[in-house]
Design a protein around this nucleic acid. Structure first.
Lengths: 282, 282
DNA sequence: CGAAAGATTATGTACATACATTATTGCCGA
DNA sequence: TCGGCAATAATGTATGTACATAATCTTTCG
C-alpha cells in the first residue's frame, strides 16, 4: 500500500505551493529525467519523511559536509516543492536526532560531531535466556529488611529509610549465569514486602509495576571473588561483567541493583543510537 | 527571561481557540484556584512543551496508568485550552519518545513497557583521560596493510578488500589503560594510508573525518592473556573489559575495532535513554 | 446469526498564515 | 574607530483548515 501515491493530493497540487511553479515531479512514475539535481524525493511515505531521507542522504554521502550550512527553509521549500512547514518538520526532526544544528538567524548546519552514544538493551535476564531456547530459573538466596545506615548504606538515600535487600541467582539450563544483589526503597514501593517472589523474579516484578523516569549505569569488568566464583560455578578470578544500575522515579531512588555475570556466558550487545540512518537504510 | 510570558499572545487569546470559552488560565499569576484539575500548565517554555510536561507528569506520577487510554486530541485541546495541532505535537513527541502508543481510530494509550535501553557514550579515550586531568599518550605498536582473507579475515567484508590494520596502546599518566586493535576499510577511507598518526590518534582521526551511520557493539568481560597482561602492565588473568565495535557508512563497514581495557582502570557509565523525563525534571 | 458494507472516529499529514525570538549585519553617530 | 542601535534574516511556535488513513462500530442483508 504505502509508497505509491503521495499522501493525499491525488495527482495534482492543490494550487497553493510556495510561490514556485509546480515543476518538481514528486510522483515517482513519469518525468524520468526532468530532475536537474539528484536530490529528488522518492515518493515513499509521508512528504516530511522523504525530505528527511533526502537531506540525511546528502549529508551521509558527503554532499553536504560537516559544519556546512544548508539552504534555509524557504530555499529547501522551493527546492523540494513543498511548504515551509513541511520542510521545517523534517529539518527539526533531523536536528532533534543530532544530524543538524540549528541557530536562529544564523541558519542550519551539518552537525560536526554527533552525540555518539550507543544503546544497550535493558532486558530481563529471563527473557534473554528464554529467547536462547534455554530453561530459565532463579533462586532467592537472601531477603532482609534494613534501615538505611544500619548495617548497610545506600548513598543516595537518607539514613533511616526502610530498604528491602534481595540476593538472587539466575540460571540458564541449570547453569548459574548471573548474581543479583538488589536494594529496593520501601518508601516508594511498600507493597514489595507482600510479594514472595516464588514465581516471578524481582526484576520482572519491578519492571511490571514501578515506572521509572531515569536510570544510571556503570559497567565494569572484575575478577570473581572466591565467594562469587563458588556461587557462579567458575574458578576464582574469572572475569565477570559487573553492572550497577540505579533507577529513579520522581527524583527518588527506587532500586539499586548490582549484577555480576560470568564473562564467557554473558555479553551485552547493541547498536548505535542514531536510529534515523538505519531507519532510512543509509 | 523565558518562563514568564506565554509564547506570543501577550495577554489574551487571539480569539480562535478550540470552540471552548477562554476559561483555562494558562498564565501563572492570577486565578489561583479556578483549576478543578491539577493538570494545569506551568507557563514555562513553549506551549507544546508544557503539555508534554503535564501529560508526562500525569503518567509518571501514576495518575494515568500503563495501558490506560488518554483523552483524545480534541478533548485534551479543550482541557488545556490550546489547539488540536499543539496537543498533537506534544503527544506525537511523547509517543516518539516511547511514553505513549497511538493507534488510529483506537486512541492514545500509556505505553505498558518502555523500550528500556541505556546509552553509553562513545568517547574518545583521549578525551576521557584529559577530562580526568591526566596526561594522555598513545603509541602505535603495529601497522600493516592486508587484503581481506590473506592472513586475517574481516567477516563482513568481501575477500580481497584492502585493509589497514593498526595496533595501538593508550596511556593515562604513563600507565597503560587500553589496548586497541583496529581494522580500517581502505576502500572507504583510502586517505588513511597517508596519515602517520604521529600526533593524532587513529580513533580521533577517524571520528573527525569519517561519518558513520550505524554501529554495532558488543561488551564482554575477559581475562587478560599473558601477552595482553604484559602490554597493559597487569597480572595475567586480570579482568578486562572487551569492547568490539563495527562502524558502518552507507551500508559498508568502515572500521572494526577491538578495545581491551583494564577492569579497575576503566569503566563505562551512562544514563538511560529516556531523556524526556530527565529533561522534565521528573 | 454471521459476514459484508458502510458510517464513524481518532490519529496523521500538509499547507497557509501570523507572529515571536534571536542572532547577525550594517549603519550611524560620537 | 568603535560602540550602540536599528534593520534584517533565519528559525520557532501557534492556530485554522482540509483532507487522508486506518480502525472500530453499526447496520444491513443473505
Amino acid at each position: 500500500m504505502q509508497g505509491l501515491a503521495r499522501q493525499g493530493l491525488t495527482g495534482q497540487n492543490r494550487g497553493n505551493g510556495p510561490a514556485s511553479p509546480p515543476e518538481h515531479p514528486l510522483q515517482a512514475g513519469p518525468a524520468p529525467d526532468s530532475a536537474p539535481e539528484d536530490s529528488i524525493l522518492d515518493g515513499r511515505g509521508p512528504l516530511f519523511d522523504q525530505i528527511k531521507r533526502a537531506v540525511a542522504g546528502q549529508i551521509l554521502r558527503g554532499r553536504w559536509q560537516a559544519g556546512q550550512r544548508l539552504p534555509n527553509e524557504a530555499e529547501l521549500s522551493g527546492l523540494y516543492g513543498v511548504s515551509r512547514q513541511t520542510v521545517h518538520k523534517a529539518i527539526a526532526l533531523l536536528a532533534r536526532e543530532g544530524f543538524l544544528v540549528r541557530r536562529r538567524r544564523a541558519g542550519t548546519f551539518v552537525a560536526t560531531s554527533r552525540r555518539d552514544r550507543f544503546a544497550l538493551p535493558i532486558e530481563d535476564i529471563g527473557d534473554v535466556v528464554a529467547r536462547d531456547g534455554r530453561v530459565y530459573e532463579f533462586r532467592i538466596r537472601d531477603r532482609k529488611i534494613f534501615r538505611n545506615g544500619e548495617g548497610l548504606r545506600w548513598p543516595d538515600l537518607p539514613d533511616g529509610t526502610p530498604i528491602l535487600t534481595l540476593e538472587c541467582l539466575h540460571f540458564s539450563d541449570g547453569t548459574p549465569i548471573q548474581h543479583e544483589r538488589r536494594l529496593v526503597n520501601l518508601e516508594v514501593v511498600p507493597e514489595v514486602v507482600d510479594e514472595s517472589f516464588d514465581v516471578v523474579a524481582p526484576s520482572r516484578w519491578l519492571v511490571d509495576r514501578v515506572p521509572w523516569s531515569s536510570a544510571d549505569h556503570t559497567v565494569r569488568a572484575v575478577n570473581a571473588t572466591a565467594e562469587m566464583a563458588a556461587l557462579l560455578g567458575v574458578e576464582a578470578g574469572a572475569a565477570c561483567l559487573s553492572i550497577r544500575r540505579q533507577t529513579m522515579h520522581l527524583s527518588r531512588p527506587v532500586t539499586l541493583v548490582h549484577f555480576l555475570s560470568v564473562g564467557d556466558r554473558f555479553s551485552l550487545s547493541g547498536s548505535s543510537i542514531t536510529d534515523s540512518a538505519t531507519e532510512l537504510n543509509l
